[in-house]
């Protein structure tokens, strides 16, 4: 257990309010929660990568960052136009 892992535990607790946002309420509200989750998950994965001392796994937070931006755009468009 090092300081990165401690930090990741603290950031992981931030997923609980995200769950509260994403699992109830209107679709718009959930989308906001989802975007927040994308950000927090990116940070969490970076912290875990550092905590495990495996910088080679840094591809994963990169993927989350790119994909959550793309997915957020697509979801917003569908909520606005098609659904």
């Amino acid at each position: 257990m090092n300081v990165w892992l401690l930090a990741s535990c603290a950031v992981g607790l931030c997923l609980v309010p995200c769950a509260a946002m994403c699992l109830q309420g209107s679709p718009e509200r959930r989308l906001v929660g989802l975007e927040m989750t994308g950000t927090i998950v990116t940070l969490l994965l970076v912290l875990l990568t550092m905590g495990f001392h495996r910088p080679i796994l840094m591809d994963l937070p990169l993927t989350v960052a790119i994909m959550s931006l793309a997915a957020g755009l697509v979801f917003a468009r569908f909520l606005e136009k098609q659904l």
Binding site: L15, C22, L34, T37, V64, L83
Partner: peptide, 23 residues
Amino acid sequence: TRDLVSQVLALTFYGMLLAVMFF
């Protein structure tokens, strides 16, 4: 969740959570 659009968004959140767990 019964509303379908909401459910898709909840599923996305669930998938994200699973990814963190796998990591």
